[in-house]
Design a protein around this nucleic acid. Structure first.
Lengths: 208, 208
DNA sequence: TAGATTGTTAATCGATTAACAATC
DNA sequence: TAGATTGTTAATCGATTAACAATC
């Protein structure tokens, strides 16, 4: 890996800040971006230098150029198709998530196993049975899959996604998924997120 | 901060793995936990040494003891009350999230502004109007709040949570929230998570 | 005892930061 | 030119890791 891991992890946050950024000018200085992203100016400059260093001395970085450079480095210039397994509240929330609109992420299908929801509409899609997922997706390459089912069904959902040819899975189920080494799994555990928040709240209160 | 930041960030993952762990024995070695958590055995031992080092040489760590030590260090032994603003799909999913059951996180209220959902049941709660949130919560101390509303309402939701006395906020809205310095904000941007997943999938495929 | 595994030291490795020449 | 800000070096800082004595 050419670019250091910490830099890669910060780039999405810089991008997020740049998308929020609505300054008077079309440029932003390393110190201003640092303030928004809660980093130091030196760290920002070092990180951005991995993109090829296209700032202007005395001026700063062009916001639009910087945005597309970060997007390019993160591979966001190529659009990504996403399938969701689980059409409950969480799956429905993800399927209609407004944040995807700006990016090149596109939800192309939502699947469930329950007759009660199959055939219902979620956003502009119709929920289909997981049994037809593999054939639905036969022609698509390297999709991302989202596991939004109860814990007990999570491994089955992951197995089906793998069979359907996804190469990355984002799981919200609080359980470890077993997948082939070629499939990358990312895990969001909401309880862990809240636990972590709770810890930092305590630490901050003790520090103040 | 006594315990290093990287250690703090890994503890929730260790805890997660220990909760999944169902070995023959009631003990786990540093190398086994390392395998589950995708770390090295030395890192695990160093991290656990910050808890007070209660492993047994030649044997390993008692799983139950270790779990409660980590929970203690993260402050999870004290239960936490959570309020949710936004009773759409995301808010409903969070309100009924099964992962909270095991821990000491408890959702005590869910609020919305839309007459269409106010009064409806979510799990074992009734959705109430955000206008009554502050008085509802007057007697509770240091709650955690979750922002699960559309981007346009996120700042208003945060303001109301702050007024109601929360000391930490977990936001799912893809926008920066302005809050007093005394309130800690944690941010989950689903688009960023998927972008990040996408990057690592690419990196992995290029490496294989 | 012999085997296993911890707890901890010291060495290595890598990331952050200060500082400043380059230059817009 | 004077002021501002980058790009990059070198120093500092901190985290990871190897290694091994301690000991169950």
């Amino acid at each position: 890996m050419d670019v250091p891991q910490p830099t890669i992890n910060r780039l999405p946050r810089y991008l997020f800040c740049l998308e929020q950024f609505t300054g008077d000018s079309s440029t932003i200085s390393s110190s201003e971006l640092a303030r928004l992203a809660d980093e130091t100016a030196a760290t920002v400059r070092k990180d951005l230098s991995y993109l090829g260093s296209h700032g202007t001395r005395g001026i700063g970085y062009d916001v639009n150029t910087l945005r597309s450079q970060i997007r390019g480095k993160l591979g966001l210039d190529q659009s990504r198709d996403i399938v969701i397994v689980g059409a409950g509240h969480l799956g429905s929330a993800l399927a209609t998530y407004e944040g995807f609109d700006e990016g090149d992420l596109r939800v192309v299908g939502i699947y469930d196993i329950s007759p009660a929801v199959i055939g219902t509409r979620v956003g502009d899609m119709t929920v289909r049975h997981v049994d037809v997922m593999q054939s639905d997706l036969a022609s698509r390459r390297c999709l991302l899959g989202i596991v939004a089912v109860p814990t007990g069904s999570a491994q089955d959902a992951a197995d089906r996604l793998v069979a359907a040819g996804v190469c990355g899975i984002l799981s919200f189920a609080p359980t470890l998924l077993r997948v082939p080494r070629s499939v990358f799994v990312r895990h969001i555990d909401l309880a862990t997120e809240l636990n972590s928040l709770s810890y930092y709240v305590n630490a901050r209160r003790n520090a103040l």
